[in-house]
Design a protein around this nucleic acid. Structure first.
Length: 566
RNA sequence: UGGGGAGUGGUGAAAUGGAAUCACACGUGGCUCUGACCCACGGUUUCCAGGUUCGAGCCCUGGCUCCCCAGCCA
């Protein structure tokens, strides 16, 4: 019996069986602390930590912090929080490339001594020009055959701070005519008189990614270094460096396709722009595809991991539909979010045969039968209640199951009521109130006859309901691929005008008067909601819609939604 | 134009020379005190053209399309 593995696990299994690494499996998640993690990183985290877990190995968390100008401690903190929140544990394997600066420097010196690296004193402009193009070979730097002793001297003076930014760089001596542009004597070190968030002013030369990354992997004993497709060309440098400086068995790099999600953006630059230009409320705006945003939105780690496992891993560039993510979230929430009643757009209903002062506290189950969980709460029924405006239609389509003039529907967990009379505002004609009568025999009784064609609707007692703010989130963009705009257009032009709707007149059942921030509920027939961690207050709860329920209902022969009727 | 990758229902993935499978989406029907959940059924013939083979999504040849590479970013 052999379940099918993705191509990465296939490779890891091959290597554990052949024993090249003595059975060890060591992966790593290597973020640069210069931004917040997003759903694309979540995919990578699930792959790297997931593979380590599946093969009894370990996944390191290593910050690839080699650029002092963009990195910050606040990012390492948020990244650690996000990885933990997602449910992964790097144990004591927390590393920083910036802790390897001394070792990396020594490795660079070895390369120089082996005549495999040299100090280039051309300007950045000259270097760029001499690199050639994809069709023309590059030209060797005039400094390319600088004597080893001179290179050594220059490199140590670079470190000592004898030169200004840009005066020299250290380059690998590989092949200026390589068909692979990345191999045309890649830069290894640059001078940068900048304060590093961890090393302060200890260094004024900093290693480039192409140098620091493979060597950090080798230093840590990584076996499988998994990254995204755009680094395929860099693998040649990776191999060149590690082969020249380390012994077998040594780490190898494998690439997979990064995640693209419909109706959102994933690039750090664009995400940063949304935040800085205040087009969203921050990195944790519930509409953001960041881990922080999804956390505040109410997405669960389990749901996100389920999503990651459902999309799989491959090398084909792809774009995943939001439906896949939302369904994974719903799938997880269905079994863990207790049901409650909320009315978002209230319509007044008076039960005319119910005594004015009678309050009946009904015990309503918090879970549907098929979930199989115990639990219920008390919901008060009174003469005056509120139902959803969209649950009443004066002129309903044939397959309507909700309230209609003269028709019946069950108040969920309570009695059937019949709509005897419809009151309207004389000037606008708008329905203002329903006068109904309830059937005292119908509590807990199975529906029969015509009643079987109706559905149970949510409701709240007018006198006991708690006013609540409900925030309905929707996709941030109006087009599926806002990152791929035609020339001269900005992705910002496609921001959805109503990606957040704030409903202030919502009413929730009294059990939800003081909900603990972070608690999740299913508001029946609406969707899943979370008590906002920032703005919710006891007595004035604020709920974020995590994701709506699926709704297959379309009025027969009409494109008009129930919300637009009556 | 050079080099490196990738093409399987609408979307994401399986099938590792032997009956194209799964999830999501969509459609139809069933169930239901949530038009949810759940259940059943339905649609693709593997980018194109040849070739090898008893047999090809998988192998070979030639095309086509898309992505990545010319930062002292990662």
């Amino acid at each position: 019996m052999q379940e099918s593995l993705d191509f990465l696990r296939e490779i890891v299994r091959r290597d554990t069986r052949s024993g090249v690494y003595g059975g060890r499996v060591v992966t790593r998640f290597p973020p640069e602390p210069n931004g917040f993690l997003h759903i694309g990183h979540a995919k990578s985290i699930c792959i790297n930590f997931g593979i380590a877990r599946d093969f009894g190995g370990i996944c390191h968390l290593r910050f690839d912090d080699t650029n002092p100008e963009t990195e910050d401690m606040k990012y390492v903190e948020s990244i650690m929080r996000d990885v933990r929140w997602l449910g992964f544990d790097w144990k004591d394997k927390l590393f920083f490339a910036s802790d390897y600066y001394e070792q990396l420097y020594d490795l660079a010196v070895r390369l120089i001594k082996d005549a495999k690296a040299y100090v280039d004193s051309q300007s950045d402009e000259e270097i760029r020009k001499a690199r050639g193009t994809i069709t023309e070979p590059g030209i060797g730097s005039p400094y390319r055959s600088r004597p080893v002793a001179e290179n050594l001297d220059l490199f140590s003076r670079m470190r000592a701070g004898d030169f200004p930014d840009g005066a020299h760089v250290l380059r690998a001596k590989i092949d200026m005519a390589s068909r692979n542009m990345k191999m045309r004597d890649p830069l290894l070190y640059r001078i940068r008189h900048a304060t590093h968030y961890r090393r302060g002013d200890a260094w004024c030369i900093y290693p480039m990614y192409d140098f620091a990354h493979p060597l950090s992997d080798a230093i840590e004993g990584i076996t499988h270094s998994i990254c995204t497709l755009e680094f395929e060309n860099n693998r040649a440098i990776y191999d060149w460096l590690v082969d020249n400086l380390f012994r077998e068995p040594r780490p190898r790099q494998y690439e997979f396709a990064r995640l693209n999600l419909d109706y959102t953006v994933m690039s750090k630059r664009k995400l940063l722009q949304l935040v800085e230009e205040k087009l969203v409320s921050g990195w944790d705006d519930p509409r953001m595809p960041t881990i922080a945003g999804m956390r505040r939105r109410g997405y669960t780690p389990e749901g996100i991991r389920l999503f990651a496992s459902r999309i799989g891993v491959d090398k084909a560039n792809s774009r995943v539909s939001m439906d896949l993510l939302e369904d994974a979230i719903r799938d997880d929430l269905n079994a863990r979010a207790p049901r409650a009643m909320a009315v978002l757009r209230p319509l007044k209903v008076t039960i005319t045969n119910w005594p004015d002062d009678r309050v009946e506290w009904l015990q309503v189950p918090s879970w549907p039968r098929d979930i199989g969980k115990e639990g219920s709460r008390k919901v008060p029924l009174t003469r005056e209640v509120r139902i959803e405006r969209t649950d009443f239609s004066v002129d309903p389509p044939a397959d309507w199951r909700r309230m209609r003039p003269g028709g019946e529907a069950r108040l969920m967990g309570a009695y059937f009521i019949r709509c005897d009379e419809v009151l309207r505002d004389p000037s606008s004609g708008k329905v203002t109130e329903l006068l109904c009568s309830y059937d005292p025999e119908s509590l807990g009784a199975p529906a029969k006859g015509e009643r079987k064609k109706t559905t149970a609707i949510q409701w709240v007692s007018a006198s006991h309901a708690i006013p609540a703010e409900v925030r309905l989130y929707d996709r941030l963009f109006t087009v599926a691929d806002p990152e791929n705009m035609e020339e001269g257009r900005s992705f910002k032009e496609f921001l959805a005008p109503a990606s957040m709707e704030v409903v202030r007149e919502a009413l929730v059942e009294p059990a939800l008067a003081e909900p603990p921030p972070g608690d999740r509920f299913q508001f029946v027939r609406h969707g899943y909601f979370i008590v906002d961690e920032v703005d919710s207050r006891p007595g004035a709860p604020v709920f974020n819609r995590i994701v709506g329920l699926k709704d297959k209902y379309r009025p027969a022969g009409s494109a008009v939604k129930p919300a637009d009727r009556s």
